[in-house]
Amino acid sequence: MTTVQNGSRTTVNVNGTAVEMYSGGNGPPLVFFHGAGGSNGWQSWHEDLAAEYTVFVPSQPGFNGTEAPAWVKTISDVAHFNHMFIEALGLQDIVLMGSSMGGWVSAEMAAMDDHNVDALILVDAAGIKPREGEIAEIFMVSSETRLKQRFHDPSQVENYENYTRELTPEEQLVVHSNAIMASQLCWKPYLHNPSLPHTLSRVDTPTLIVWGNEDAIIPVECGHLFQQAIRGSQLRIIDNCGHSPAVEKRGEFVEAVTSFLDSPQISVF
């Protein structure tokens, strides 16, 4: 196996579509799918996981450097596309991880076909409609409101100024373009698929559900609903934490993931 610098950017050809991807590390494959805001590239928590896993961080179709093929219009289409992406990489027995919208996509992928998935990790995932609360409005609000919704306590966020600084025109175009794709995928039904709680009954992959207890976008109630939908799944709730535990509670998040993956339940590793 060749050694690459962690976080290096490459592209992967998926049936003619060039998928932008960051990757690094050694060990079993772990594929992470980003949320509706798009990819933030290689992050410090990826680096943490790269100590034990080969971490793949693609930009999904329509986000960042990956063009959307014309046929990709729904979350289900993205899930099919992501399966093709994993096949194109030739990955076997993967850890499938997704956050927010990427968690929704990952859940759909597992419901379609989980024979190649050794472990599923859903982080503050969209996809199931809460019964009591509501999924917050993320499109018809200002970027300031969206940022407030995302983090419970900004002082817990490394380099928080990166989230508030003025963007370059190129970055603005990427943000806008990502928002268009997210809007296309998630507007209606709003950030959920009514069938998902039912189709998830076919999943028999060991599953960890991680949720920020103070998630102001997708209420923690949805974590419980995912746990009910996926047989034998574990729910780990992180206190004093908003919608992005990997960013806001990096240490606790990485510990939750690695201890789950190290558990005897995950036979292959």
């Binding site: 499109f139 928002a179 296309q184 507007w187």
Partner: peptide
Amino acid sequence: GPMEFNDPPGYQSREAL
């Protein structure tokens, strides 16, 4: 109101931009 009411993501196409 928020700009996103008058110009929510996707109301203007990439082509329009």
